[in-house]
Design a protein around this nucleic acid. Structure first.
Lengths: 215, 215
DNA sequence: TCGCCGCCGAACCGTACCGTACGGTACCAC
DNA sequence: GTGGTACCGTACGGTACGGTTCGGCGGCGA
């Protein structure tokens, strides 16, 4: 692999952080080049020299935030069944916390709002640098669990998507539309526990199938 | 209830259909008042007289489309287990078909892109007139199934959300970001069958719990 | 000390779009 | 015929924003 990817200078990262704050607070409409320059105490000239374009600035914001996504590169071998389950619960809770966060919601709204354009580079960026990383983290965990006989996952991707559905359900969609997490839905720990229980019910260690009852 | 809700005159519905086509094809950016007037062969003056405002036009588009959502008001009593299961599969396939459709994606993108504003009236509109209706349709079905002992659903809303998660998983989010359904994911019938199987596994008729294994 | 470079702040330009105003037309009531 | 209403098409004002240009300033090497 290459060096730890400077990608942007410290000053540029500073500007991108300011821009991110703007878009988190006011949505895309608030992200004018003049506003970014004012908030970051820099000139529009520098913005255009560094990022080339408004779209380039948007892409840089997404890339900047994605670069902060760190996968806890932990050792998944030699896990007991209970430790494996605990890892799944932690993943579930982390996932809900991230998806409900202001930053994630703002960037997803930004990319989705622009996804009508052909190509939709922002959406692709978010998929590849955000969701894909999270999915990969979960998949290696699931594959390790399957290798050690804790679950019967024939296809890690399929299993991951089921896990995701049980954890998130329709909550992300509602949050994206402006609904706030309320009541029991805000208890991410409880939700994480329940969804992992359901997942382990669907993929029991001894079964050969993928949750489909025999018959 | 009131009369079948004229809500808009035929001419206005015609204009709204044109506007909907515009937003489906080109996203929100393509939906300028001038473009709507040109596409619908009407004057901007009429647009503003009828809908008051550009935001009013957006809301009218959503309301117009939502009014076309028809819940098949069918009789859910006296269903055999297999007929109940068939109803669930039909619901699942309908849900996937709707969510993957151009119109649904365009309107969801529109509302999500505007959801940063406080209040987010479009998001609320979509939640109340779109998702809530679909959820209600599923809930009455699930309650009927529970009453007849086909599933063990203590809370219809909880059960519905689990069903939704098993059906949709992370597909809707990926579609919203511009990814196309491809491969096995495009086979909605197969997906519907699998997810209903999983749902029935989690909510078996004889069990008393909500999918959590005893212990 | 001098010139070069990167950057800031501000002014500027062209354009796109919202909202309104106005002239012209078809239709209806009387 | 006459007035009224609803509508179309277009032109216009005002504004906001993306992108460019310019003057000035501090730092830095020679």
């Amino acid at each position: 692999m290459t060096a730890p990817a400077p990608e942007f200078t410290p000053r540029q990262n500073e500007v991108l952080a300011s821009a991110l704050r703007l878009v988190v607070e006011g949505g895309e409409k608030a992200l004018t080049t003049a506003a970014v320059a004012r908030a970051a105490n820099c000139s529009k000239e520098s913005l255009y020299r560094w990022f080339g374009d408004r779209d380039g600035l948007l892409a840089a914001i997404v890339a900047h935030q994605a670069s902060k996504v760190r996968v806890p590169h932990e050792n998944d071998d030699q896990l007991s069944a209970s430790a494996f389950r605990e890892r799944l619960v932690t993943f579930a809770e982390d996932l809900l916390t991230v998806l409900a966060g202001d930053t994630s919601l703002a960037l997803n709204r930004l990319a989705i709002g622009q996804a009508s354009r052909e190509g939709s580079p922002l959406g692709r960026l978010l998929l590849e640098r955000g969701r894909l990383r999270i999915a990969t983290r979960a998949r290696v965990l699931l594959e390790a669990g399957a290798a050690q006989g804790h679950i019967a996952a024939v296809d890690a991707t399929e299993a991951y998507r089921t896990l995701y559905g049980l954890i998130v359900r329709d909550a992300h969609g509602r949050w994206l539309l402006g609904q706030e997490p309320e009541g029991a839905e805000a208890d991410f720990a409880a939700r994480a526990n329940l969804s992992v229980d359901q997942f382990l019910t669907l993929f029991p260690p001894d079964a050969q199938n993928t949750g489909r009852p025999a018959g």
